[in-house]
Each structure stands twice: as C-alpha cells, then as structure tokens.
C-alpha cells in the first residue's frame, strides 16, 4: 500500500471512533489530535476561523434552550444541555474537517473510476478549505471568486502531486498509525470510566 493510501485508511478507520464518541471532552481531545497530526504532516492550520466557527455553533445551539439554566443575562438564558450540545457539535465539525484534511494527501490515488473521482473530490475540498480566504464582496461574489480560484487548479496540478508532503518515509507511517491508535484509545476511555 502506498503512503497516501495508508493515510486514507488510517483516517477512515479512525472516523468511527470519533463519530461515535459519547463524551464531548474526549471528542475535543480527538479534535486536538487530528489538528496536531494535520500540522505535523505539513498542512496549514488557522486558529481564528476555527475559533469563530466553534463560537458560532455554540452560540447557535444556545438559541434552543435545553436542560438546566446555568447562566442568565439580559433575558438570555444559557442552558447546560444546549451548551454541551453546541460544544459537542462544534467538535464534530472541526474534527471531521481536520480528519479529512489529514487523511487526504495531495497525491492520493484511489483505484478505479469512482476512486479517481473521490480522490478528486477530496482534493478540491481540501483546496476550498485551505485556500486563501475571500474577503471582498457579498456572499455571491465570494462564492464566485472562490470558484474562480479553485478552478485555476489545473488537472496537471492534481496528478503531478506538486508540493509533496515534507515528512520522511518512516514518519509518514508513524503519524497515521498513531492517529488510529490514539483516537480509538480516546474512544474507549469514557466507556471504561
């Protein structure tokens, strides 16, 4: 099995341990694991957009009260259930993004026609998420500009595997193996406590 495929299989095998995580705290530890693995394997990480996204999800969930009121100000009630729910959902979204970014290497080649297509989808998704932020214009103009930017990526760019991963051969195998082992360990711990 080549190295990009090893990353993909490790990521896919780790996904159930993350998706079925019952404890929000351990879910966030898994998120930190995926972010660390993404950084180690040479991809960019921006703190602010992730913080804003997390805050946005938690705030949106607080709009639907659920459970015990733990804080109340200016007529707005913060409920425990909504807070935990928002915290967990934010973790799920951020974690899935980084698990996918970690799992999909630039030169990933899944066999078969559907495999090639899926590799391409992941490739473009990575470019959309990782690419430069579009700040000018309204929502529609931003989408248009993003499409133009992603479109510039040529077919050769996809198949040549330009900007290869900077890890050495040994490290490349250790990182996904560790992600797999640690994410399942973090899944198991809350079940045993």
């Amino acid at each position: 099995m080549d190295k990009p495929k090893f990353f993909l299989w490790a990521g896919m095998a780790s996904a159930p341990a993350f998706l079925f995580q019952s404890d929000p705290l351990f879910r966030w530890i898994q998120v930190l694991l995926f972010i660390s693995a993404t950084i180690i394997s040479g991809k960019k990480f921006r703190l602010l957009p992730n913080l804003l996204m997390t805050a946005g999800i938690i705030f949106a969930n607080l709009m639907t009260p659920n459970g015990k009121v733990i804080l109340s100000f200016w007529g707005f009630s913060v409920t425990q259930g909504a807070l935990v729910n928002g915290f967990s959902r934010a973790g799920l979204l951020v974690g899935m993004i980084y698990l996918s970014r970690f799992s999909v290497r630039k030169n990933l080649q899944i066999p078969g026609r559907l495999g090639s297509l899926l590799s391409l989808v992941f490739f473009y998704f990575d470019r959309i998420v990782e690419g430069e932020r579009v700040t000018r214009g309204n929502f529609m103009e931003k989408i248009d500009e993003k499409l133009m930017a992603v479109q510039k990526i040529s077919i050769e760019d996809f198949s040549s595997g330009e900007n290869p991963d900077h890890l050495s051969g040994g490290e490349k195998l250790i990182v996904p193996a560790l992600v797999f082992i640690l994410s399942w360990t973090l899944f198991t711990i809350p079940l045993l406590i």
């Binding site: 090639s116 391409l120 989808v121 473009y124 077919i155 996809f158 198949s159």
Partner: peptide
C-alpha cells in the same frame, strides 16, 4: 491513476462545493 476528464473535474469540484 485512471485518466480523468474535464467533466469529471467539474463534477468533483461541484461535489466539493456541496461538501
């Protein structure tokens, strides 16, 4: 890698935008 047509690139790109 199997050769990927221009239309397949469009499908993949739009699918990525769906995601």
């Amino acid at each position: 890698m199997q050769s990927v047509s221009r239309e397949a690139h469009m499908v993949a790109m739009l699918a990525a935008f769906c995601m």
